[in-house]
Simulated assay, not measured.
Amino acid sequence: MNALAIKKGASRHSAYDLRNPMDDRQETHTLAVLVDNEAGVLARVIGLFSGRGYNIESLTVAEVDHEGHLSRITIVTTGTPAVIEQIKAQLARIVPVHGVNDLTVEGPSVERELALIKVAGTGDKRVEAMRLAEVFRARVVDTTLESFVFEITGAPEKVDAFVSLMRPLGLTDVARTGVAAIARGVGGAVSARPVP
């Protein structure tokens, strides 16, 4: 029992960082990495993961500052607390990286994913697919006499649930963007590395 009622896994900036680095339990973390928008940077970041046997569950990259030539890489990865800390430290040492934030432990964040889901079916299965799409607020972006393509946006868990419900109704294909995440509130932005 936590007598102070402090959320387990509080921010690393907090005096109450209660995460045990020796814990062998696997955790999923969302990392936001601010990098120079230049050729080869993504390959260096991905090389860090593949070279050390770390897994990437989701990866999104986009330019966020055209004038500053900066891109944001959002990575969802899984590992023990010690492995996650090692990943963050190694990412921060790569030269074109300006900042690394662990959105999972640094406070509340918003995570969204977009997916295109193709479902083939006729009759009752087609009607049921449309009914479920309405419940999940998925939009029909393409239709033929034999199939639908739905577009759904939301938390990864919502997309997972929709996909699993579509399987028995004739799911034929899924395309997912990966997680885009941002910290809630004023703070929590990906901070640039201090200039030496």
Rank of each mutant, 00 (worst) to 15 (best):
Met1Val: 06
Met1Trp: 03
Met1Asn: 14
Asn2Leu: 04
Ala3Glu: 06
Leu4Ala: 15
Ala10Gln: 11
Ser11Met: 01
Ala15Asn: 11
Tyr16Phe: 06
Tyr16Asn: 12
Leu18Cys: 00
Leu18Glu: 15
Gln26Trp: 01
Thr28Pro: 00
Thr28Gly: 01
Leu31Gly: 03
Leu31Phe: 14
Ala32His: 05
Asp36His: 08
Asp36Trp: 10
Leu42Lys: 02
Leu42Asn: 15
Arg44Gln: 04
Val45Ser: 03
Val45Gln: 02
Phe49Cys: 12
Arg52Glu: 08
Tyr54Ser: 03
Ile56Tyr: 04
Ile56Trp: 07
Glu57His: 08
Thr60Ser: 10
Thr60Asn: 10
Ala62Pro: 00
Glu63Tyr: 02
Val64Glu: 05
Val64Tyr: 01
Asp65Ser: 12
His66Val: 15
Gly68Pro: 01
Gly68Cys: 11
Leu70Ala: 12
Ser71Pro: 05
Arg72Lys: 08
Gly79Val: 08
Pro81Leu: 15
Ala82Gln: 10
Ala82Cys: 01
Val83Phe: 00
Ile84Gln: 10
Ile84Leu: 06
Lys88Gln: 14
Lys88Asn: 06
Gln90Cys: 00
Leu91Gln: 07
Ala92Tyr: 15
Val95Ala: 09
Pro96Tyr: 05
Pro96Thr: 10
Val100Gly: 12
Asp102Ser: 13
Thr104Asp: 05
Glu106Ser: 07
Glu106Thr: 09
Ser109Ala: 12
Ser109His: 14
Val110His: 06
Val110Gln: 08
Glu113Phe: 08
Leu114Phe: 09
Ala115His: 07
Ala115Thr: 09
Leu116Cys: 03
Val119Asp: 13
Ala120Met: 13
Ala120Trp: 13
Gly121Leu: 05
Gly121Met: 07
Thr122Tyr: 02
Glu128Val: 15
Met130Ile: 07
Met130Pro: 00
Met130Ser: 09
Leu132Val: 09
Ala133Leu: 04
Phe136Lys: 14
Arg137Thr: 13
Arg137Ile: 00
Thr143Val: 13
Phe148Lys: 15
Phe148Ile: 11
Glu151Gln: 14
Gly154Tyr: 12
Gly154Ile: 01
Pro156Arg: 14
Pro156Met: 07
Lys158Asn: 08
Val159Ile: 05
Asp160Asn: 12
Ala161Val: 04
Ala161Tyr: 02
Ala161Arg: 08
Phe162Asn: 07
Val163Glu: 06
Leu165Phe: 14
Leu165Trp: 11
Leu165Asp: 09
Arg167Glu: 06
Pro168Glu: 09
Leu169Lys: 02
Gly170Met: 05
Gly170Thr: 12
Leu171Ser: 08
Thr172Tyr: 01
Thr172Asn: 10
Asp173Trp: 02
Val174Asn: 01
Val174Tyr: 10
Ala175Asn: 12
Ala175Glu: 15
Arg176His: 05
Arg176Ala: 14
Thr177Ile: 01
Gly178Arg: 04
Gly178Asp: 10
Val179Glu: 14
Ala181Asn: 14
Ile182Val: 04
Ile182Gln: 04
Gly185Cys: 02
Gly185Gln: 06
Val186Glu: 06
Val186Pro: 00
Val186Ala: 15
Gly188Glu: 07
Ala189Gly: 02
Val190Leu: 07
Ala192Phe: 00
Arg193Lys: 06
Pro196Lys: 15
